[in-house]
Design a protein around this nucleic acid. Sequence first.
DNA 1: CATGAATGAGCGTTCATTCAT
DNA 2: GATGAATGAACGCTCATTCAT
Lengths: 203, 203, 203, 203
Amino acid sequence: MVYRKTDKVEAKQQQRKNSILRAGKEMLAEEGYQKISIKGLAEKAGIATGTFYLYFTNKDKLVESIADEMYEQLIDEIRLERSKYASVFEKLQASMLVCVNLFAREKQLAKILLIQAPGISKILNFKLVNIEKELVRLVKIDLDELMEQGLIPGQDTLISACAFVGTFRQVIISWLREGRPQNLEKSFETLLGYNLRGLGKHD
Amino acid sequence: MVYRKTDKVEAKQQQRKNSILRAGKEMLAEEGYQKISIKGLAEKAGIATGTFYLYFTNKDKLVESIADEMYEQLIDEIRLERSKYASVFEKLQASMLVCVNLFAREKQLAKILLIQAPGISKILNFKLVNIEKELVRLVKIDLDELMEQGLIPGQDTLISACAFVGTFRQVIISWLREGRPQNLEKSFETLLGYNLRGLGKHD
Amino acid sequence: MVYRKTDKVEAKQQQRKNSILRAGKEMLAEEGYQKISIKGLAEKAGIATGTFYLYFTNKDKLVESIADEMYEQLIDEIRLERSKYASVFEKLQASMLVCVNLFAREKQLAKILLIQAPGISKILNFKLVNIEKELVRLVKIDLDELMEQGLIPGQDTLISACAFVGTFRQVIISWLREGRPQNLEKSFETLLGYNLRGLGKHD
Amino acid sequence: MVYRKTDKVEAKQQQRKNSILRAGKEMLAEEGYQKISIKGLAEKAGIATGTFYLYFTNKDKLVESIADEMYEQLIDEIRLERSKYASVFEKLQASMLVCVNLFAREKQLAKILLIQAPGISKILNFKLVNIEKELVRLVKIDLDELMEQGLIPGQDTLISACAFVGTFRQVIISWLREGRPQNLEKSFETLLGYNLRGLGKHD
DNA sequence: CATGAATGAGCGTTCATTCAT
DNA sequence: GATGAATGAACGCTCATTCAT
């Protein structure tokens, strides 16, 4: 991608938009959607309340943007990481590692996605839920392939995919809420083992 | 004193309280806490707004009542069911079966607990989260015992307990959101197998 | 007046009405009109909320009744006491002494009349104000007579009557609010002297 | 930053604040505290309900502001006027003349202070009562001094101060309520004479 | 374009009054 | 007549959104 030389104004505007998004994520992670007041958000972003509406149609649209950004960030990283491996097992493993690492790195994102998602406006919830669904879908594709290849026994891969994702989800939630396990990334191997056994992976 | 609180009156009142609770659960399941307006709730329950306050101190207290009710319902059923079995494996299995059956029976309860829990007033969120934590705690106790008895290999039982609960959680969420798997109860065996393998249960 | 033999029921009802009036006065003196809730009033009077409306049309009417009762009590006592004396000076003196003694005896009544009167529904305020006006009117009649008799010099008796009543009013208010002077009745002589001098009473 | 708080804007805001205060005083004088509804007040002030809260924290704080304003206005005028005279008699006279003139000029203020004061929120009542107490206190100081100087005979100056203030209070109240005396300021001399005689001022 | 004061619909809650029992 | 649960209008207040500057 070739960068078009943006003039100062355009840069400033992008910067403003980003500061709004950043403030939005922060508040979404800490307080939940309803607690966000545009006045408070604007203050945090260093702008006037009215300015917010120059960048986002309304409160809902801001949160939609946050969701879209999160979706892209997660799926892009997964795509990128998967491309580095050849075997489906490795690809599957890479997918989950990306999630764990991303969430470990960006707690905020994790809180929004795994904890705050509901209780938000219908449309936003829909978007956030979609991220989760997409992850299960990707895992299911992998499992179907592994089954076809005879690397795992025949099974209801929808259930298995849910189970697979669910184990990670629950551990991450525990880590977010209670700080246990202390080191999320270290738990990855343990969890992966649990799931591979669960899938009945042939040695 | 002529006015007597007759059985009929008392029955009517209990009925009213229940209709408020029912309306509350319904709205909580469908819309989330913040979207509940007392006016709307009262309309749904077929009462005047003021009447609500004869039965509940305020909005928060209603949701607390719902949470408490759910907590008791779930934990009581688990306790009862566990008492029927002797082996830890059977007890563990019974615990999860209770959950699956209860949620299959009371979709609303499942939605509130698994989907809407956050984004609710701090105190309520705390209560709902506690239900989940309690479940993980109970499973962990079982796993610790199984490990001691040498029925499963040495492992980080916190991770395993999370994983265990997480698989059920995710499948139930999928069922709630997308209707798949169609028959939740039938998936139980599959899911149990996945987890027993994951735990490394000795044959 | 010959007492008609009332049956038990009628007695009970009068008793009830009185207990409502008593509770009303108490609350009016302590809290002011707006703070009176019918529920609280009923509780204090030992009746059910609905019962209140069997005895009084509404909240306003209760307070009107209280005002009427107070008016009669004060004016009747004044009339009675005045009748015991021949000279106008003595009658005037007797009028004020009645007020001071009554207020000293029934602090509640004083609080309602001198402190809480306004801020009450228009009509009630009107009634309470009338008590005060009546007192000034009575004093003015006395002063006019004294002037005619040449016992006090020529003067604007409206002003003098207001001044006369005002001195008592202010001292009583001070006593109600701050407890000073400690003994209201002892201050009567002092105050009377102040006013007689003020009126220019010939020795 | 393009938006600048220009003088014009600031003037507009001060004007708005004043119109709220004016509406508040008007309603307070006519209806009493409890009858003020923010919606009604806003309507009278020509603003939206929400706008009120940009200028005052809440209803109580508005009335506090009104009280504070009144207190300062009265006490300041008294201080100023007293400073123009040397003898205590003149100072005392000046104090009361200020009151009479101020109340004659600002009927509203008089109504709030002398008629509506009670029945208002505890804190406000406290403030308004304090104005009255302060006046009595000031008068008492003067009387104590006059007594020390031998210009008036020995007496209970608390009672005398109350009496003194009470005469003015009652006349002003009569003027407010009934329009009599028609000309308040003309009555001042009469009233002053009454009190000086009452105090036993030596010729 | 940026601002933040202004808006007013909508919230949770109270309470004088009604009415079925 | 007595009861107290039920009613719903009205309250003080908040906050997403608009718009004059």
